[in-house]
């Protein structure tokens, strides 16, 4: 029985990584992934391009959401965790910050594998206007 469960879980992981890859990662998304991986050694990282939810051309890389689970956040208040992530992204993108970066920054004890990231709130047309 446990073998079956393990197989199912492997499959889920495979599917997940597959679907992530399928959503054709753009250069900005890759850069964000890279810098957060390098600097925060996260136990879990999701970088989601939410640009499609907004009033921007198809394939844009303007709106992102990240879930970072890292021990480096231990003992840091929320605002410092967010500042850290913002700084890393800003440095990596050489000052060309993305239009929106929604952040969930957790320590491992605040996260479990079945945790699902909520999509960001609906756009109301404010972008670039």
């Amino acid at each position: 029985m446990s073998a079956v469960l393990r197989a199912a879980s492997n499959c889920r992981q495979l599917c997940k990584s597959y679907s992530t890859r399928m959503a054709s990662t753009g250069p900005i998304q890759s850069a964000i992934q890279e810098t957060l991986t390098e600097n925060l050694q996260p136990v879990h990282l999701e970088v989601i391009n939410e640009s499609y939810m907004h009033n921007v051309p198809k394939g844009s890389e303007t709106h992102f959401k990240v879930l970072v689970v890292s021990e480096k956040f231990e003992n840091l208040p929320l605002i410092k965790r967010h500042r850290l992530v913002n700084e890393l992204v800003k440095t990596k993108l050489e000052g060309n910050f993305v239009h929106a970066l929604s952040i969930e920054a957790k320590v491992p004890s605040q996260w479990s594998a079945d945790y699902k990231v909520d999509p960001s709130p609906n756009c109301r047309g404010g972008f670039g206007k």
């Binding site: 929106a100 960001s120 709130p121 609906n122 756009c123 109301r124 047309g125 404010g126 972008f127 206007k129």
Partner: peptide
Amino acid sequence: QPRCGFSNA
């Protein structure tokens, strides 16, 4: 009349 989902939240 918030003009952005984040502001609306």
